[in-house]
Computed example of a mutant assay.
Amino acid sequence: MKNNIISALIAAALSLTILLPTSARAEDHLQSQFSHTIDYITEHGVSVVRSSDGGNLVVIETDFNTRNRSELRLLLGRDGMFMPEADLGPLARVTGLQVFKAPPGLDIQQYTEVHIWNPQHNVIVGVAPLK
């Protein structure tokens, strides 16, 4: 119940952030789909949106799911590698909407991918190229 309430609040906050009076430009919203590695299935959407305060939000979409049940973390990366300095935190669950706020000093333009990483086994379970 508590997780449902938190998810609903995050979704409402995200909707308000996106629907503010200033219209979003194409460069303020990036969308992609997770692909999976040979051993893991991770699928569906992820978006990066600019928040009203000028920061960035990485949004795992409502249809997201992965079959990996271990602790997972969301990181940004480039050239097929995640960057430890761009660790946005642990996933709260293996399905559904999740919103991650990028730290203020993190230049999101330097990254070309969103990674889901299993630190226990040091394996990437999903990658979404940012377009």
Rank of each mutant, 00 (worst) to 15 (best):
L57I: 07
S32H: 05
S51H: 02
H29M: 12
D53H: 02
R50G: 00
F64D: 04
A26F: 09
D53G: 02
T66W: 08
L72I: 06
Q31Y: 14
G45R: 11
E43P: 05
D63T: 06
N65F: 14
Q31K: 13
F64S: 05
Y40R: 02
G77A: 03
R67V: 13
R78S: 06
G54I: 11
S47P: 06
M81S: 15
T37A: 05
H44M: 08
E61N: 04
I41W: 09
V59E: 07
V49N: 01
G77V: 00
T42A: 09
M81F: 15
R69L: 15
Y40N: 03
D53P: 01
V58C: 00
G77P: 05
S47I: 10
V58R: 01
H29P: 04
L76G: 00
G80D: 05
S32V: 12
I41Y: 05
S51I: 08
R67G: 14
H44S: 08
D79M: 11
G54E: 02
S32P: 04
R73M: 09
A26M: 04
I60S: 00
V59D: 00
L72C: 02
E43M: 10
D63V: 06
N65A: 12
N68R: 09
Q33L: 13
L75E: 02
A26H: 09
H29K: 07
N56F: 13
E71P: 11
G77Y: 07
T42P: 06
I60Q: 00
L57C: 00
T42E: 03
A26T: 03
V58Q: 00
V46L: 04
I38K: 14
V46C: 07
N68C: 13
E43L: 12
I38W: 12
S70W: 08
S70Y: 06
V49F: 08
T62V: 12
T62G: 10
R50V: 03
E43C: 08
G80T: 03
H36W: 14
G55A: 04
N65R: 13
Q31C: 12
T42M: 14
G55T: 08
T62D: 07
E43I: 15
D63A: 13
S47L: 01
S32R: 07
H36Y: 11
G77M: 03
F82T: 04
H29E: 06
G54Q: 05
L75W: 07
G80Q: 02
Q31H: 14
R69S: 15
S47T: 14
S70E: 14
D39E: 10
A26N: 00
L30G: 01
V48P: 05
L74Q: 00
L30S: 06
D28R: 04
G77R: 03
Q31N: 05
T42I: 14
A26C: 04
N65Q: 06
E27T: 15
R73H: 13
S52W: 12
I60Y: 02
R69K: 15
E61L: 07
S52F: 08
M81H: 15
G45T: 11
E71C: 10
L57M: 03
G45V: 11
H44G: 01
N56M: 08
D63I: 08
S52T: 03
L74T: 03
D53A: 07
S47R: 04
E71I: 14
N56W: 14
T42K: 08
E27M: 13
M83W: 12
H29G: 05
R69T: 13
N68A: 12
L76N: 06
E61D: 11
N68M: 09
G77T: 06
L75S: 09
Y40Q: 07
R78V: 07
I38F: 14
S70F: 10
